[in-house]
Amino acid sequence: MTLLRAALIWSALAIAVVVPLAAALNSPLLAWRQPVYIAAGLAGVVAMALLLVQPLLAGNYLPGLSLARSRRVHRWTGGFLVAAIVAHVAGLWVTSPPDVVDALLFASPTPFSAWGVISMWAVFAAALMAALRKRMRLRPRTWRLGHTTLVTIAAVSSIVHAMLIEGTMEVVSKLGLCALVLATLVKAVIDRRVWKTRR
């Protein structure tokens, strides 16, 4: 029964990640895009998928992973998430520098750009906080609240960013992935009782 449950959870995660990626890879828009632009778009889809994986690891929901290993994978995945975002922005910058400069300066005509940039800084800040946690001697509660607030901002603005874009992501799979990101984040925050002073 536990084996079946484990298989179900892992397959559900695989489907949730693979379906939107496969749909984006089949987008008709790819025919009119150069490789670097295609890669930049896909890096964004990968980043969104990693935003689903992160709360699953933080909440230790993935069967077969001990709490310690779950945490370790969470840190590595955080690094991959930062890398995916860097690849996303860099690829878009190569494709059309003025559009990316506008976005980074919050001067873009497209509202989703601002949400993407907010999300980027929130992820960077959350990752930086994780990297400097020991050095800054953060109290556990400060750490929990700070990191959770930043990743909540990141997840919510990423969802708004993705939903407003008319791009390579297929609409239904995009909506599904976004809903899962939000649901797992909310569940992890509630289950971890982030706001509690003592556990």
């Binding site: 509202p111 907010i118 607030t149 909540t152 919510v156 603005s157 982030v194």
Partner: peptide, 17 residues
Amino acid sequence: TRRSLIVNGCAAMAAVV
């Protein structure tokens, strides 16, 4: 405090063009 953190964060994000 925690609520105001999140509420203020969301409000900041909602500052749209």
